[in-house]
Each structure stands twice: as structure tokens, then as C-alpha cells.
Simulated assay, not measured.
Amino acid sequence: MPIKSYLTKINLTHPKQLQTLVENRRVFNMQNCELNVFETYQNAYHIPLTFNDLVITSMVRGKKMMHLYDEPAFEYLPGETLIVPANKSMVIDFPEADMQNPTQCIALAIDASYVKQTMNFMNSYYNTETDNHEWTLQFSQYHFSNDNEISDIINKLIRVCSSGELAKDIFADLAMKELLIRLVQSQYLKRISAEKDSNNNQGKAHFILHYIQEHLTEKIAVDALSRQVYLSRNVFFKWFKEQFGITPLDYINSERVKLAKQLLADSSNSVSSVSMQCGFSDVNYFIRLFRKLEGITPKAYKDCIMYTRQ
């Protein structure tokens, strides 16, 4: 997965305007959504929070511990997003919050009819006779690491909802639709990627991800991929982006970096040998790409792995 992409920090509430030190709330109401900005300035535990609509939350600063879906508590950190269905309770701990290190997150509550309308749009536009499946948000996968595109959309929503623009409802609607589509595509990619080995003959999506995995260490051209599923290059590129929300090259590179991380954990593998084993002909390109996706260089990543083993 790509490195977490952090949201642009939102100005904190002036101390004189704070109503409470735990989950102080600012609300921006739109036609089809409600943007909430929550801030906490002291340690607190077992704080319940429930919304009447689907909510998409993203951490901006600080750390929370989330209790959700009857699963073990987990850290919720900047650069991460959660989706929670309507009327589902979250219980939140703030173990590190104080006046110098407050937590801040946004919660975007979206009207159910708008979510349904967007899913209907996806099911009518993104389905074909050969790739027909139901597009819907799956709450079994609710925890996301934001990539650049998701962060850009959320940042846009924050700017629009907190602005005084006359057309902000229109701009917010467009951004919300894009955000929902990106999240559903991300879920679909993860599901198909997990199924690709056992169901590689089930359809084009399973087959092509399985094919990429089988040839990950080789040169993979988009033309070659398109021929595998009997599509023209342009049609294949468009189909892949519509299904998964990213380009074929972006997917190939992310999978190669995943493989590289496994290989770098072996002390006998050098950065240059890992680059070659992962299908990169240019080690400098590999280093730049690894740093873009993981935030550090392959050498620094390898050093971190070796240090933790000491």
C-alpha cells in the first residue's frame, strides 16, 4: 500500500472559544453532508461517539485508540481514514492528548440517500456484461491508509465546506462522490487482489492481477496486459482505472515495492540486487519510487529492519 498521505492541518480552535477539552466540535452543515472537526486537549478514555449517518473520519494530528466493531482496540493515526455505518458506536481513548499535543480529526457524515445515489451511479456506469458485480461500501474493510488522491479529495472537502463560496454545495457534492468512488474502488482492489490466486479464472479482474503477480519480476508493458484480456490498450487502461481507481503502472509499482520490502528484510540482499529482482532496470528509479511510496529510501528501510533485530 502507498505511504500514508497526511491531511493539511486545520487551524486549532482558539483557547477562548473551546467549549470542552474533550472532543470539542466545530460543525459545517452542507446540503448532503455535515463536516465535523473534533479536537481533544487532555487525556480521556472510553468516550462514545455515534452518528445518525454514514461517517468517513480522517485523523489530522495526534493519536487515538479506537474501539470499533467489537474488535481489539487499534491505534488511529494521522494519514488514516475510517468508514463507520450509521448508528454504529465508536468508543475512543485519548492517551497522549494535552494542550501542547491535541488530537484533531474530521468526521464527514453523509446523507444515506446520497450514498445510495452514488452507488447506483457506479453500478450503472462502471459495470459491463463481462465484469458485473455490485458496487457497495464494505464495512468489513473500514480502515484505510490515505494515498495522495484520497487526501487531496478530503482536503478539498474541508476547504469547500469551511468556505463562504455560494457554490460550495455543488463543489462538495462532486468531491463527496469522488471520495466514495475512490474508497469503494480501493476496497474492490484489495478484495480481488486477495482472491486472485484462487479465482484467477473467475473474470478479467482476477485474471489480470494474477498475471501481474506471476510476472512481477519481469518487464510488464501495458500493451502486453491488454492483449491478455483481449482489449485495446486505451480500453484496457480505462477499464483498469475504473475498476481499481489506479493505473496499471501504479498497481505494478506498488506490488513491486511490497516485494522489495520482503527482500530487503534479508540481510544478504543489497539494494541493487533487490531492485533487479523486483523487475526494475534502473536502481535510481527504484530508489525514488520506493521513497515516494514508503517515505524512506530502501537503504533506510533495510537499516531499520536490521536495527529492530539487534
Rank of each mutant, 00 (worst) to 15 (best):
M1Y: 09
L7D: 01
I10D: 02
N11A: 14
L12Y: 09
L18F: 07
T20H: 03
N43Q: 15
T50Q: 08
T50G: 05
N52K: 15
V60W: 00
V60K: 02
K64W: 10
H67T: 08
Y69T: 08
E71K: 15
E75S: 11
Y76W: 05
P78Y: 05
E80R: 00
T81A: 06
P95I: 07
C105L: 13
C105Y: 13
M119Q: 04
N120F: 06
N123T: 03
N123H: 00
W135N: 00
S145I: 09
D147S: 02
I150M: 06
N155L: 02
C161H: 04
C161R: 05
S162F: 09
S163F: 04
L166E: 10
V184I: 10
V184N: 01
V184Q: 03
Y188N: 10
K190E: 14
I212L: 06
E214A: 12
E218G: 06
V222I: 15
V229L: 03
L231G: 00
F236E: 01
F237C: 14
W239V: 02
F244T: 00
I246E: 07
D250Q: 15
D250G: 12
Y251N: 06
S254D: 12
E255N: 10
S268H: 14
N269M: 09
M276D: 13
C278A: 11
V283N: 13
F290E: 00
